[in-house]
Amino acid sequence: MILLDLFIAFFKIGIFSFGGGYAMIPVIEHESVNHGWISAAAFADSVSVAGMSPGPVAMNAAIFVGYKVAGVAGAIAATLGMSLPSILIIVLLGTVFYKIKDHPVIASVFYGLRPVITAFILFAACRFAIQSHLVSSDIRKSVIGIVMLLIALVLLFYKKVHPLALILSFGVIGILGGWLMA
Rank of each mutant, 00 (worst) to 15 (best):
D138I: 03
G94C: 07
G174S: 07
L6Q: 02
P85Y: 06
F16C: 08
S86Y: 01
G19L: 07
L84T: 09
A42M: 08
S142G: 12
L176K: 08
P56M: 09
L113C: 03
V65D: 07
G20H: 03
D138C: 02
I13H: 00
F170V: 09
S32M: 05
F7E: 05
S48F: 10
F10Y: 14
T118K: 10
A70G: 11
V49S: 04
S86F: 02
L168R: 06
L84W: 03
L156K: 12
F11D: 01
I121C: 05
I8S: 06
I13Y: 00
E31K: 11
N60Y: 02
M52P: 06
K99L: 03
S39A: 06
N34H: 13
V109Y: 06
P104F: 14
A78C: 13
G174P: 07
A107T: 10
P56D: 09
V96W: 09
G81N: 04
A165P: 00
G74R: 04
L84V: 09
I90P: 02
Y111S: 14
G20R: 01
V116C: 15
V57A: 13
I15R: 05
P56Y: 04
A107Y: 01
P115F: 12
K160V: 04
I90L: 15
L122S: 13
A165V: 15
F123S: 11
K99G: 01
G178Y: 07
F43V: 05
V96A: 12
Q131M: 09
K141E: 14
F18S: 02
A125C: 12
L156S: 15
G51I: 05
T118N: 11
F123D: 01
V69D: 01
D45A: 15
K141A: 14
K141D: 13
F128L: 14
G174W: 08
V69A: 08
I117A: 10
L88D: 05
I87C: 08
I38Q: 10
Y111E: 11
M181H: 09
A41I: 10
V161T: 15
V143C: 07
I167P: 05
S17D: 00
A61Y: 00
S83G: 11
D102I: 04
N34C: 03
P115W: 10
G19Y: 05
V72D: 00
G21R: 00
G20I: 01
I13M: 00
F123L: 14
D45N: 15
I175V: 15
F120A: 15
A78Q: 09
S53C: 12
N60L: 06
A125P: 02
I25V: 15
W179K: 13
V27T: 13
V65Q: 07
P104E: 13
S142A: 06
G178P: 03
L153M: 14
F18A: 06
P54D: 06
G20E: 03
L164V: 12
L149V: 13
V72Y: 05
D138M: 01
A58V: 00
Y111P: 00
L166R: 10
G74D: 04
I100V: 15
F123R: 04
S46E: 07
G19S: 08
F7V: 08
I63G: 01
V135E: 08
K68D: 12
G178E: 05
Y22D: 01
I139D: 01
H35I: 01
I117F: 11
A129Q: 06
I87T: 11
A9T: 14
R140F: 10
H162K: 12
I144E: 11
L168I: 15
T95V: 04
F128D: 03
